[in-house]
């Protein structure tokens, strides 16, 4: 079953939010790049980056929500998440993307691309899962 979406987006997605990378460097959320996540995961003892490819995007019974099916990691495990249409994901080499970029920009002031089937998002998993 997909995860239930929360009613509001976390405040750290708001443009201007200060994010601390694993090496201590501070960046604004809108300035983050793929390398920042990759380098932070390298430093982390517990977390590693997985590639999660968008397989499907379906409408949800929940208003303003969608169900996104990802193919996660080298084993292509199928994971569904239910999120608000404005929820931003970070796409490799592209940056923040959401199912409804206009709404994301309206609510968070965060510039977004349109999240589409085939996009490869950054996700996290535990390094100890071996």
């Amino acid at each position: 079953a997909p995860l239930s979406p929360s009613s509001a987006l976390p405040s750290f997605f708001m443009k201007g939010s200060i994010i601390q990378l694993a090496d201590g460097e501070l960046k604004r959320v809108e300035d983050l790049r793929t390398e920042d996540f990759l380098q932070s995961a390298e430093v982390s003892r517990e977390l590693k980056i997985d590639s999660s490819t968008v397989e499907r995007i379906d409408s949800s019974r929940t208003p303003d929500a969608v169900i996104i099916q990802f193919s996660v990691g080298e084993h292509k495990a199928q994971v569904c998440v239910e999120v608000l249409v404005e929820y931003p994901f970070f796409v490799f080499g592209q940056g923040w993307s959401s199912c409804c970029p206009d709404r994301t920009t309206q609510l968070l002031a965060l510039s977004c691309a349109k999240l589409s089937v085939g996009d490869v998002c950054i996700s996290l998993t535990l390094k100890s899962l071996k």
Binding site: P10, S11, F12, F13, S17, I18, I19, Q20, L21, A22, L26, V29, L32, D36, F37, S40, S44, L47, I49, D50, S52, F70, V72, G73, H75, A77, V79, V81, F89, F90, C121, I122, S123, L124, T125, L126, L129, K130
Partner: peptide, 25 residues
């Protein structure tokens, strides 16, 4: 006068989803 506000800092790993696949080798 503008009062200084404490700056809230969020960890990088809050921003991307944790998609646990329960996959084991």
């Amino acid at each position: 006068n503008v009062e200084p506000r404490s700056l809230q800092v969020f960890p990088w790993h809050s921003l991307v989803p944790f998609l646990e696949t329960s996959q084991s080798n």
